[in-house]
């Protein structure tokens, strides 16, 4: 494991911490897209199907369990917690799941490395992760007064995949035969989706003003 991969994972982990912190500290999930959270949970469930059958390292197994556990915990807070669930922006969070899930499922059926159920479902999770942030970005654009923790959460999520790109470049040059077209292209698409957000996030940080996305 190289430093970029580790940094990427830690930033990813931190994004969960920031999100749970925001929801718990403010007892509110205002500005957070339940749809994106549900899509991420689906991503992790599909990707970590091999959790108990394919052991890579203690680190990997632990992180997978933490990501799954945290995702379900966030879903519980947003859907089941009686104080928090009423703060959910149901009317604003209107992105349709099918517009993302269906094309990703079709693409996974068409483009994959091996025609096995496990591999196709895993590939679907890679495609879906790339676009799962879209409902959140749409909601952010509609939300006036984005709070700092929500802005930081989205920034960390974007940064995580950016660091993975550096990890893939590193691995390409250090590991023989390390070619991962599906993951690389999806990861680049995923990072590109954040570029507009990064621009406004960094601008607001430099000018020391509250983050606001132009609508």
């Amino acid at each position: 494991m190289n430093i970029f991969r580790l940094a990427g994972d830690m930033v990813h982990l931190l994004s969960f911490v920031v999100l749970v912190l925001k929801i718990n500290a403010t007892k509110s999930c205002r500005g957070i897209s339940l749809k994106t959270q549900e899509l991420y949970t689906l991503v992790f469930v599909c990707r970590y199907l091999d959790l108990f059958s394919n052991f890579i390292s203690m680190y990997n197994t632990t992180m997978k369990i933490v990501f799954l556990g945290t995702s379900f915990a966030i879903l519980y807070l947003m859907r089941g917690h009686k104080v928090i669930k009423v703060t959910y922006d149901r009317e604003q969070d209107t992105f349709r799941y099918l517009f993302l899930v269906l094309p990703c499922a079709l693409l996974a059926l068409l483009i994959h490395n091996a025609w096995t159920p496990f591999e196709v479902v895993w590939t679907f999770s890679i495609y879906l992760e790339a676009v799962a942030i879209l409902p959140q970005l749409v909601l952010l654009q509609r939300t006036q007064n984005i709070d700092n923790l929500t802005g930081n959460y989205v920034f960390l999520l974007g940064l995580y995949r950016g660091l993975y790109i550096l990890n893939w470049i590193y691995r390409y040059f250090t590991e023989p035969h390390y070619i991962q077209w599906i993951v690389w292209i999806s990861g680049i698409v995923q990072t590109i989706l954040y570029l507009d957000f990064f621009y406004y996030y960094i601008k607001s940080w430099k000018n020391n003003v509250k983050l606001a996305l132009p609508s």
Binding site: N54, I56, W122, H177, V183
Partner: peptide, 10 residues
């Protein structure tokens, strides 16, 4: 080998 399939990443 796991690194050949990319399944060693999260």
């Amino acid at each position: 080998k796991s690194s050949a399939t990319g399944h060693d990443e999260l």
